[in-house]
Design a protein around this nucleic acid. Structure first.
Lengths: 207, 207
DNA sequence: GACATACTAATAGGAATCCTATAAATAGGA
DNA sequence: TCCTATTTATAGGATTCCTATTAGTATGTC
C-alpha cells in the first residue's frame, strides 16, 4: 500500500460525489413511488429473482438485520414482497417479489438507467476501462473488510487474471473476458474469500 | 439519449455498489470519531477553507438547510466549527473550521485515502481515464438537474474540450489538461450553467 | 425615503429511519 | 437428549432529517 497520489484523492472525491448524486436521485425516485430509500434498494436487490435470506440482504445493503426486517414488513404490507419459510432451514425466511414488486423494480431500473446512459463524448472502451477500475476498487474494499458481499468477476474462483500475452479468462464459461464482459453481480459467482466475518459495527454516534 | 447498453447498466451497478461501500466506510469512520455521517461530510467539505454559507453546504450535500443548521450546531458545540456573520450580507452566516476541526478533517482524509490507493494491478492511465469518465457522468447529472453544485473542469467556463488533434485546455491556467490534470473541485471554477434552480424536493415517503 | 418582495438562517415540531438488546424458534453436534 | 450457534422478529429508543414558520436583512420600486 503506497502513499495516495493526487490522482487517487481526486478519484475518491469523484466517486464520492457521484455516489451522493446517485443516492439523491434514487431517493427522489423512491419518494415519487411512495417508498423509502431502503425499500427501493431492497426491490432492486430482489429483482434478479435470486432467493435470499433476510440476513443476506442486510449485509448486501450495509444495514442491520432488524432494519431490513422493518422495511420488509412495510413492503409486504404494500403487496410488493412476500416472506415464505425457507425450504430446508426452518429458522430462515425466503424473500421474493410479488408481480407488483417486480413491475415496480423494473420501472425503477428503467427510470434510473438514463442517468448513466452513453453519449458521444465517452468511448465504449473508456467506459469499459472504468468498469474494470471500479470493480478493482470494490475488490480492494472487500479485502479491506468494508464489503462482505461481492459477486464480481474479479473475486470469482473461475476468474483467470490477464497475463502479459493472454487476456483474462472465465474458467466456468471457458471464454476470454474483455473489460466489457466483466460482471458486477454474477449469478454463478464462486467466492475466493475464505470466510466472511461479522462486520463489527461500532457503537452509535452521539451529540 | 440512446437506449442504455448492458455496459451502462453494469457501470451504474458498480458505481452504486462502490458508493454504498464508501458511504459505509465513512459512516464507520465517523462513528469512531463520535460524529454523525453528516457531521463528517461537513468537515470534509469545509476542509478546503473556502468560505461558505449554510445554504451552500446544504445543496452540496443534498440535504435540507435546517438539517445542516442542526449538524452545524452540534459541530459548534464540539468546538470543531464556527459561525460568524457574513462580511457583506447581514442575513448570511459564514462557516469555518476551528483548528481542532481542521485537524480532525485531515485525520479523516488520511484514514479514508487508502481505500482507493493505487496498486500494481491498475495503471495510472486507466485510473485517469476513470476520473474523466466519472467527471463526465457528474456533468451529465448536473445537466439533468440532479446536482446543482459542481466545480469540475468539465463544466468550467475556462475549459476547452479536446479536438481531434489538440488536447483539452484550461484557458485560465493557459495549460493543456490531460486526464490526470482534471480537477473535481477547482477553487477557480467559473460556472457555465445559466441558473441553478431549487431542487424541488418532493414530499416525504410514507408507510 | 418608505414600502413591498425576496432571500437567508434559525426554531419548532414531528415522523421515519435505523440502531441495540432481547426473545423465540430451529439446526446441528456432542 | 442437551447445549450451543444461527436466524428472525419484537421492543424500545435515540437520532436524523424533514416541513412549516418566524425573524432579520437585502434589494428594487414608487
Amino acid at each position: 500500500m503506497t502513499e495516495p497520489t493526487p490522482l487517487d484523492r481526486k478519484l475518491l472525491a469523484a466517486t464520492e460525489r457521484l455516489g451522493r448524486a446517485l443516492r439523491a436521485a434514487r431517493q427522489q425516485l423512491a419518494t415519487r413511488h411512495r417508498l423509502s430509500l431502503l425499500q427501493l434498494q431492497i426491490l432492486e436487490q430482489l429483482a434478479d429473482q435470486r432467493p435470499r435470506r433476510i440476513g443476506d440482504l442486510a449485509t448486501e445493503l450495509d444495514v442491520s438485520q432488524p432494519t431490513v426486517s422493518d422495511a420488509l414488513a412495510t413492503l409486504q404490507q404494500k403487496g410488493l414482497a412476500t416472506r415464505s419459510p425457507h425450504p430446508s432451514d426452518g429458522r430462515a425466511t425466503t424473500i421474493a417479489l410479488t408481480p407488483a414488486g417486480t413491475a415496480l423494480a423494473e420501472l425503477a431500473a428503467t427510470e434510473l438507467a438514463p442517468l448513466l446512459a452513453s453519449d458521444e463524448t465517452t468511448s465504449a472502451d473508456d467506459r469499459a476501462t472504468t468498469l474494470r477500475v471500479l470493480l478493482t476498487e470494490i475488490a480492494r474494499l472487500q479485502h479491506a473488510g468494508v464489503i462482505t458481499v461481492n459477486r464480481s468477476c474479479l473475486t470469482c474462483h473461475h476468474y483467470q487474471p490477464p497475463r502479459t500475452r493472454t487476456p483474462a479468462h472465465c474458467h466456468l464459461l471457458d471464454q476470454p473476458l474483455t473489460n466489457h464482459d466483466l460482471r458486477v453481480d454474477c449469478p454463478e459467482h464462486a467466492s475466493t474469500a475464505p470466510t466472511r466475518f461479522p462486520a463489527g459495527r461500532p457503537a452509535r454516534p452521539q451529540r
